[in-house]
């Protein structure tokens, strides 16, 4: 004999679990992103090649677009929150992002050979 309270419990539990799972996913996702290092500007300037192969997070403001390379993407100039340290980074076409000058972004970048800084992903903040 089935209890009348069971279906109600189940109907309440499932959404709760979904919410919990969703929150957990969001939490874990945030935890996994927050684990990347901040881009070491000084080290890069001292030895761009030495950072090749590394990935970093770069919180910066987009100053201007420096060049458009049709085959690759756009070279943009970003600066840190103080506006003193500027960097040129490449936003690949495949990200299909609309870039706004003056907008602050979180760039997830990979440092490649020759000191190239390629944006892997980005988001406004």
């Amino acid at each position: 004999m089935k209890s009348k309270a069971t279906p109600i419990f189940i109907s309440v539990l499932i959404p709760l679990l979904s919410v919990v799972v969703a929150l957990a996913l969001i939490y874990f996702k945030k935890s996994s992103l927050g684990a990347e290092d901040m881009f070491p500007y000084s080290q890069y300037m001292a030895s761009p090649e030495s950072l090749s192969g590394n990935s970093y997070r770069l919180n910066a403001q987009l100053n201007r677009q420096m060049a458009l390379i049709p085959a690759s993407g756009r070279v943009v100039l970003v600066s840190d929150s103080k506006g003193t340290s500027q960097l040129a980074i490449l936003v690949p076409n495949k990200l299909e992002e609309n870039l706004s000058t003056g907008q602050r972004y979180k760039f997830y970048v990979d440092v490649e050979s020759g000191g190239k800084i390629i944006v892997r992903s980005m988001e406004k903040f």
């Binding site: 890069y44 003193t84 960097l87 020759g114």
Partner: peptide, 14 residues
């Protein structure tokens, strides 16, 4: 190493 050169020029311009 054009990317590195570009960023160094930008640093010098600062």
């Amino acid at each position: 190493k054009y990317a590195a050169a570009l960023n160094l020029y930008i640093a010098a311009q600062e």
